[in-house]
Design a protein around this nucleic acid. Structure first.
Lengths: 195, 195
DNA sequence: GTCTAATTCGGTCGATCGACCGAAAGGAGT
DNA sequence: ACTCCTTTCGGTCGATCGACCGAATTAGAC
């Protein structure tokens, strides 16, 4: 009775839901099993351990992002428009829970080498994308000042990670005008491009 | 026998140590008690609950930072030098464990309203400081372009938070040139100031 | 010295955790 | 019909968790 794909996907979906509800520190195999509506033993049958389940969840969430990344990379939009799109993606990813998942996994990685390596791999791919975009922008804009493309990648990407953590913490635009700041950066880029 | 101050401080110190070793999800009252060399019951006598102990630890770590913040606020250094100092502080805080503590608390706040409120208070103070500095810089530099001082505060502070999370995750300068990027921002500020 | 209140200590409670087990149930190939 | 392999299921193990208790100890007031 190989209803395997169903159950496995069901557990992963429940694991995501449980992670969003309780955070990583409150995550337990029993809560996941209850949420999925399957016996506890199913989790260890399909994933072997809680640890492996977490890694599988991270991998599954990342799969979704990879396809979108490649679309963006192939796009020929002007820089300011790509920045705008990145701001839109942030809102999407906040709603979908992906931001929370990745940030929870990042925090878990501070104490777990396997998770840390997995998260670094994911984020490394993102930074390479940003660096590549910066390298292309260097030609268009005539150099990047004192910065290498990789450093521009850092300066473009890190604010998003910091803002994500703050938004998850409950900061509102009134106390931390993060969204308006990001949008205005887009308009500055637009002027730099001479649009 | 009121050796109370000793024991209480000892427990807080052990709590910090345990948090650095195991992360928030692995933190337990027994590990803290063992590390402090006191019976488990002492923790509940002095702090009432694990929850209160965590909040007390956060408050204690923040006290240290507050004094330094005020020193920086009162300083009359040029902007680029303050930025350099912020980079130096980052290295100090990474070594001392303060970065890890605050980032762990931030992540814990995603699932705990009390911790979230406490962390927001701390970071709100930091952002106000940055915004104030940006407002002062606006006069010196002749405006901030399209940005409000608060938005400049966001754009100055958020990269640090993102970079902290990545450094804790084990990113090296080779894969993520975060330190060189931050330092070069300082040199750009220096040119803007016409020094 | 005596009394009082604060502090220390060892022990224990019920709940929850991850992991594992053997038996039952089901589908596929013959 | 039979076998073989995958999957499902309920139950249980030892470990660990936060919280709490009563008794013993100690410092300081008088």
């Amino acid at each position: 009775m190989p209803s395997d794909p169903d159950t496995k996907a069901q557990i992963l979906k429940a694991a995501k839901s449980a992670l969003l509800n309780t955070g990583y520190s409150g995550l337990s195999t029993r809560k996941i099993a209850d949420e999925a509506g399957v016996p506890l033993s199913q989790i260890h049958y399909h994933f072997g351990s809680r640890h492996n389940l977490v890694l599988a969840l991270l991998d599954r969430e990342n799969q979704k992002l990879l396809t979108r990344q490649q679309e963006t990379f192939l796009s020929e939009m002007p820089l300011w428009k790509r920045w705008e799109q990145a701001c839109d993606y942030l809102e999407d990813d906040l709603r979908s829970g992906y931001v929370r998942i990745l940030q929870e996994m990042t925090a878990a990685g501070w104490s777990d080498d396997d998770i840390a390596a997995a998260v670094r791999d994911i984020l490394k791919g993102w930074f390479d994308l940003l660096s590549g975009t910066a390298a292309a922008a260097a030609e268009k804009l005539g150099g990047l000042g004192p910065f290498t493309p990789e450093e521009i990648g850092v300066l473009a990407g890190m604010p998003f990670l910091g803002i994500e953590a703050m938004l998850l913490l409950g900061f509102k635009e009134k106390d931390l005008p993060s969204r308006s700041a990001l949008r205005k950066v887009g308009s500055v880029i637009r002027k730099l491009e001479g649009d």
